[in-house]
Write a protein that binds this DNA or RNA. Sequence first.
DNA 1: GAGTGGTCTAGACCACTGT
DNA 2: CAGTGGTCTAGACCACTCC
Lengths: 279, 279
Amino acid sequence: METTETAGSPGVRVDELERQLLAAIDRGDYKPGGRLPPISDLAVEWETHKNTVSKVIQRLKTMGVLTGAQGGTTRVRIQPERIVRRQPERYREEKRSALLPDGERGQIGATELDTGLSKSDLSFAPTVRSIEPADDEQAALFGVAPGTQLLARQYYTRARNSERLLGNGKSYLLHSVAERNPALLNESDKPWEGGTMHQLLTVDAEPAYVVDRVTVRPPRPEEAEALAIQAGVSVFVFRKLTYDANDQLLEYSDFVLPGDITELVYRVDLPTWKEGTDA
Amino acid sequence: METTETAGSPGVRVDELERQLLAAIDRGDYKPGGRLPPISDLAVEWETHKNTVSKVIQRLKTMGVLTGAQGGTTRVRIQPERIVRRQPERYREEKRSALLPDGERGQIGATELDTGLSKSDLSFAPTVRSIEPADDEQAALFGVAPGTQLLARQYYTRARNSERLLGNGKSYLLHSVAERNPALLNESDKPWEGGTMHQLLTVDAEPAYVVDRVTVRPPRPEEAEALAIQAGVSVFVFRKLTYDANDQLLEYSDFVLPGDITELVYRVDLPTWKEGTDA
DNA sequence: GAGTGGTCTAGACCACTGT
DNA sequence: CAGTGGTCTAGACCACTCC
């Protein structure tokens, strides 16, 4: 175990092997969906130690190029289509449909609107309701005193025929507002029908605009497990804030979405040049 | 080296130590900006091997909790403020200011508008222009035949007094459109003055709407180095497409932004309920 | 140049996969 | 249960930082 060729330099060997493997995959030596040789085989082929090969494979797994768990076969990952979420269109559609009679709107749940999948593609874990006191940040957002009661709902979304979570979220609104419609507090633990916009309608609040705040970070261990993403793949953290015309916050939600299969799309319309300087 | 307590189980030891370290930092045992004991010290303290401690530290570095390079001291990272990019406001302001006379608009460069920092905070590497044939994807976007000439510009943004890149981008527009203003092709390698919207004005094109497509992925090695982000911190990949009123793509740009210090904010205005069913 | 973080090989062992 | 991926300890070595 002595006199190694070159050790210590920052990742020289692994980087090199990583490039080689990527090139080999790119060349088609290993095809999407096909299986990679066992680590032990690659070790002798690359003339290196099993341990080093393992590190390379793990890197490519976090990059989303390879798949495979514990003792299972390692395969070249078939790149999944990203789920496209067209946010402005979604919000406008949700607000419009909130006015429809119960029969026509009824089947659209808040979670579906938030994830952008049709109902048939989804299955839900029960929504969990709780009443929580506002912390300092929440108090500032709602413009109330810290400790004010908030109605919180936690929900999870899972694609049908898949163990993989598509995301989870937690939504907050003022308890004093929510109680204007007792049904919101007493409902059983099924997902709210009709989406957030409709629920706001039932408490006489009209949303005027929505603000999305989008950030990224590595997943927390629980999230990595729940969303079934490879360690190292980041998650979108996504706060949706709904305001009324007086800039009063009506509701906000924090979402966590897997970064590798999500695409957020925002269309921004611009005032025309011809119509003079607008307000 | 024989008879290890428990090896082989998936990350048990490292996970445990990671939790302990995080808890210790949370408790204030190690304060933000303060230095962490050497790995060798921690190894004896945690009663484990140097190698294992190293792995824990690296994990926390990719999580952005710790900082420190090669032989340097490891410190608890002071969380940087995220740079907030309010996209719709930015685009509308850019379009409005495009009509201003040269003197008033002049000092606003495209890169500044795109990064959302004022000119005094930024320094630029020269913009690199090139003429490239459209690949299949680009041809589809522009609605032209593959191979059609595109004018491409590559630019980088760096905060003053910092080696850290804030992002880099590459912008494309049809060469046949760009040549309507010869100045765009012949300019020296300084950043375009006035931003994309103004350049479109000079070729008689009026942008009607902008579409942002936001995704995340792990950084490529070059990007990790250029953006000075810890390996494992994801980057925003961000495509901005500018269309005219006929849904013709005028220009698009791909940006890469470091995920740990960027926040994207989108305000979406909603039609009111009272004004009947809109178009 | 001592100290420190990072990497490599080596070998043992574990837990899961899948045939 | 054989095969395979993953993890740990061990020890050597390297390249960087800065005490």
